[in-house]
C-alpha cells in the first residue's frame, strides 16, 4: 500500500533538500508520495525540475508562511 512521507528539509540550502528527497525516494516503493518541506526558494524551483528530468511525477508545490511544500510521487 502506498505511503505518504514528509521530508523536513527546512533550514537547509540547495541541494540539501533535493539530496534528502533522493535518499528517501531510493528507499520508497512505487506509488509512494513524498512531500518535501523547505524554506529555500532555490530548492522549490530546482526539485520540480529534477523530478521532471528523471521521470517521477511532480504533484505540485504550495507555499505556506515561507515554507514550500513540494510533492512528488515515485513512479519507477
Amino acid at each position: 500500500m502506498a505511503e505518504k512521507k514528509i521530508i523536513d528539509g527546512r533550514g537547509s540550502f540547495c541541494p540539501g533538500p533535493l539530496m534528502e528527497l533522493i535518499g528517501v525516494l531510493k528507499m520508497s516503493q512505487i506509488g509512494d508520495e513524498l512531500e518535501v518541506l523547505s524554506n529555500d526558494k532555490g530548492s522549490a524551483k530546482d526539485i520540480p525540475e529534477w523530478v521532471r528530468k528523471v521521470g517521477h511525477e511532480f504533484l505540485g508545490t504550495r507555499e505556506e508562511n515561507g515554507v514550500w511544500h513540494i510533492s512528488v510521487k515515485k513512479t519507477k
Binding site: G11, S12, F13, P15, G16, M19, I22, G23, K26
Partner: peptide, 17 residues
C-alpha cells in the same frame, strides 16, 4: 553561517545516491 550542506557530505552523496 547559513549552514549550507557541507561539501564532504555532498561528495559522499554523489557516490552513495
Amino acid at each position: 553561517t547559513k549552514k549550507a550542506p557541507d561539501f564532504k557530505t555532498l561528495f559522499s552523496q554523489a557516490v552513495e545516491l
